[in-house]
Amino acid sequence: MSRAEPSAPQGRGELRDRPQTARARRTTFRATLLRNELLTTFRRWRTVALLAVLAAVPVLVGIAVKIETGDGSSADGGGGGPAFISQITNNGLFLVFTALAATLPFFLPMAVGVVAGDAIAGEANSGTLRYLLVAPAGRSRLLITKYATVVIFCLAATLVVAVSALTVGALLFPLGDLTTISGTQISFAEGLGRALLIALAVAASLIGVAALGLFVSTLTGSGIAAMATTVGLLITVQILDQIPQLHVLQPYFFSHYWLSFADLMREPVYWDDLAKNLGLQALYAAVFGSAAWARFTAKDITA
């Protein structure tokens, strides 16, 4: 940002007749693209629909559990089902954990894949990309803005699931102190804190898919193709992660440590897999972020 600064005093013409506040203003100007990008993304009907589907999952799970246990029998008889599901009848807060565990393998990353895959390819498809670039948005700036928006979407989507689950849980079931996986008791307030931490861990788990989707998005001029490819990759990796013969590769699959968020419900918290997950997501962000940058900054935009 400072490279052009030293020359400011000798500038001429209207290009820089406001030197004093230039730095401050430049920062605000920079951020306006991100603000506009967020507004544009979250105002889209498609984004709203994705979030609505995500919000509906806890509602369905909550109602199903309520009906199942309505006759007085306990839910834990059947076994199976998503993590923590048997605890929901005792404590509505567990619906948050169950809903996140149920949406993390597919619904959440799919929603992220759709938004990330469409990020650049969708703009290319509609031709708006060329106008953003001649504005000039700057290729790196646009790409960083797009990635930041997708990451914020990851957080928003996770929070939508968590808040919807908390609301449904509070409406349908009792709330109170809860028992951790390790068997110890924690207060409801601490339980809420753990729920927030878990939501953050889940959101962070999606960073890798976000970077992958963005990279795919720079490869094609069709938003639909980019979305389909990203979601296809997501499913493939999940399947490969189940094949025992591939155990050497599996630690590098972005979804491998996803369920580590449950470790936040242990007492004391077991950090190993959580840290591995964060490291892996950071690796994906670095690798595919760089690949996306290399591709996008050198690409001919003819659409």
Partner: peptide, 29 residues
């Protein structure tokens, strides 16, 4: 009109001070 100062390094948009001075000169000439 706004300023033209650049920010983060860009492959396509990499620009040096000499370039910026040139823009000023082009205007005068």
């Amino acid at each position: 009109m706004g300023e033209v100062s650049a920010g983060e390094p860009e492959r396509r948009e990499a620009r040096d001070e000499a370039g910026e001075r040139e823009l000023g000169e082009a205007r005068d000439e």
